[in-house]
Amino acid sequence: MPMIKCRVEPHKQVILTVTIDNAIAISSIAAYFRDKNQLPYQSQHTKKQKVFLVKPGVGHEVAGKKQPMRCLIVATPRDPSRPITVTCELKGVLKPAYIPPQEADRVSENMRVFDQDFWFNA
């Protein structure tokens, strides 16, 4: 999964919303920079979608880290014949305005991994 490079708004809170479709079960999300401290998140799961809201921090703070943020989710598909699709939305960033939905990587018939890096620049 190629890294997603972002340009932040310096004084705005960066919020990442991760929506997972076609998952019957998921591990919790792990989002962190290289200091390995887990970033705070909220989960808003519905019957059809699993949603996580991650708050990496204010724009100039996350850009100042000069390192990628890792976002990891392990899931089981509801329908193994279809991919698990993950849609990421970023608030508090100038670019990118839109991130296309991605397919989680296939580990086995019943296990998929979404392991995405984000790099925030000023």
Binding site: I24, S27, S28, V74, A75
Partner: peptide, 20 residues
């Protein structure tokens, strides 16, 4: 579902810690 959750947590933990 509980059993599946536990398996996914174990896999998640491995991916996280081994990479770190």
């Amino acid at each position: 579902t509980d059993s599946i959750d536990n398996i996914l947590k174990a896999a998640h933990s491995f991916y996280l810690n081994r990479f770190n």
